[in-house]
Write a protein that binds this DNA or RNA. Structure first.
Lengths: 354, 354
DNA sequence: CTTCGTAACTAATTCGATTTAGTACTAGCT
DNA sequence: AGCTAGTACTAAATCGAATTAGTTACGAAG
């Protein structure tokens, strides 16, 4: 006799009712076939060639009718493929990471990959722990943002803004030399000679390379990088806001009492903070001080004044990271490095030196 | 004779070498015990009481020595628990979603949960598909941001900014009435009578509720909500920037030629866009037009002028979402709604009406 | 001296799909 | 008739751990 569970002969009851999923075995019984046969058909495995089309059609029809979905865990356990990747970002927040993250989805989702995300706060221990925990979950690869890896990770990895060549790792990096040259020659053209610099925090993957590029470019342009105008930004403790750091360091810069007519900030966020500090000190931007940022975050063109900045194609870098990792996972070879080009976006925060 | 693979008798070779993981079976053989016994000890299952402490110590020591990590898939397949949750946000980007996302990690990671994240672009079909794909991956629950659910999802769910009461769903919402009242009474106190409004896009979960709250609050304060000053923001197509929408709608507002002295924008991003439009039209903020935003995004206090806004405790809302979901998953009861309070942050974008 | 109880385990099943090695049957060829 | 070659499948092993139902050995109680 029929037991008193709610009868649902339709497999696909629209409402989000949580009826228990159909299993391969049940589907097979329904079809009067073995689970093996059904699996073979559904996965279009090579052996399926010998199975007549009529049967195959029956199988697909029944699978659809009963709403069969292979169990992800069982399948992954067997195939050792999870179609998942792990993403570690410095901080889930505005600015840089947000820009890159937007690009990640593009290729991944359409290929059936999902990603776990977590933050590493620019701390090596957190990064290492994140890698380990994600590996336990059998992700197939990593995408890391602004991470300073010491050793090659155990899985295919793409690092956005990674400057160390490591076995099995593809670095997606901006051409920092071009970037620095663009920014500084723009300032030089405007007649700026006393230029202040925000140097990136030591725990930032781009900081050293960008600084080196700045020093090189300055030399080429016969500009001075004055130590008394160079400010080292500090990394943030968890949850702090980087705008504040730009603000504080700009105040410090002003307190030094040194004359300068322009600031090249490490990134847009710090630039915005600095701009605020200059306003608070009664200075005008750009009339008294020109500011060049870095990144071209979404808000950059809407600020007051709008921000002249070196544009990193953040979103594109995210897309590249996703695509390159997929290629790797698909067995393709990938280069140790992909270099993307920056672009100087001149807006209203720069003008000729006073 | 030993085969020519690199000998590693130490289980824990520091470098990220990808030696194949130790299995329960191997560990058991090493210990000269059955896999069952080892499993029982390691999981501290009740039956372990009858196993002498000495043996237990041996097991733990050996597990550590060999670097044994239970296979996540095998374990999950058996236990039907994945310690994963699914997060769907409107867009991985600056502003609202970034703020909330920052709060999510707090409780989840420390409890061993990771989350998949994907965007739903405020489109019901993408949301539904995301839910389905994530469910296939056997996430244990969902956290949704600004999602408009039609039907209750099949798993424990927390919706941040969800205004529909649904079975099994906890909504974390802002008290929109307080928010509207704060903002409008601030403007009323400053003598503003002709106030323009940006109404949220129809695909935004907060839009209707907030608009209703605004209309109610205006009535209470005897303020007029003039149709000719009310502008409907449009939802965005994939990848667009919301600043631009604020900018465009503000231009449209100006083009109507109606006098107004203040704007209450749907959110900070739209407010920033509008501010830019006003500047471009030769208007001053706040002297000619006061602006009140909504959210208090990270940059709000660093803008020029800094933005008066209704603060949503975004990060806290994220934390709450994570905590509440964990409680649910742990078997606890959770309320259908958690209401958080807004706060008016008065900065420099508002001043007495001209 | 048998029986019971318990300590200390182990064997076997289960989770749900994939995959390899077979098997039964038919058709064709000599 | 006997043999091969397909065709259309199925049975059983596998992935790696968790769990239930036993099993063995030993000491104590009757």
């Amino acid at each position: 006799m029929p037991d008193p569970k709610k009868g649902n002969s339709d497999g696909e009851s629209g409402a989000g009712a949580s009826q228990k999923p159909v299993r391969l075995k049940e589907l097979a019984e329904h079809l009067d076939l073995s689970p093996a046969a059904v699996s073979i058909v559904l996965n279009r495995s090579p052996v399926a060639d010998s199975i007549p089309q009529a049967t195959q059609d029956r199988v697909f029809a029944a699978a659809k009718e009963l709403g069969y979905r292979p169990d992800f865990l069982a399948r992954s356990l067997r195939s050792r493929r999870t179609r998942s990747i792990g993403v570690l970002v410095p901080e889930i927040s505005e600015g840089y990471a947000a820009g890159v993250s937007r690009g990640l989805e593009k290729h991944l989702l359409s290929e059936g990959y999902f990603y776990f995300i977590a933050s590493h706060q620019s701390e090596p221990e957190l990064l290492a722990e994140g890698l380990e925990r994600l590996r336990e979950r059998l992700v197939e690869g990593f995408i890391l943002l602004a991470a300073q890896l010491k050793a090659p990770p155990p899985l295919p990895t793409v690092v956005v803004s990674g400057h160390r060549a490591l076995e099995g790792v593809t670095n997606v990096v901006l051409d920092q030399d071009h970037a620095a040259h663009h920014a500084l020659s723009h300032l030089a053209d405007l007649g700026h000679e006393r230029i202040a610099f925000f140097r990136g925090p030591s725990n930032n993957a781009d900081a050293d390379d960008r600084w080196r590029a700045i020093v090189d470019a300055a030399a080429t342009l016969s500009l001075e990088v004055a130590p008394e105008l160079s400010i080292q930004l500090e990394g943030l403790s968890y949850g702090e806001v980087f705008y504040r750091e730009g603000y504080a360091r700009a105040k410090e810069l002003l307190a030094r009492g040194q004359r300068f007519t322009a600031l090249f900030a490490f990134d847009d966020i710090a630039a915005v903070g600095a701009m605020r500090a200059f306003f608070d000190a009664g200075l005008r931007v750009p009339e008294d001080i020109s500011i060049v940022g870095f990144d071209d975050i979404e808000s950059a063109s809407f600020l007051n004044p709008s921000l002249t900045t070196v544009r990193q194609p953040l979103r594109e870098m995210g897309e590249i990271a996703g695509r390159v990792l997929l290629e790797r996972l698909g067995g393709g070879e990938t280069p140790p490095q992909v270099v993307v080009k920056p672009e100087l976006v001149v807006r209203d925060s720069t003008c000729p030196a006073p």
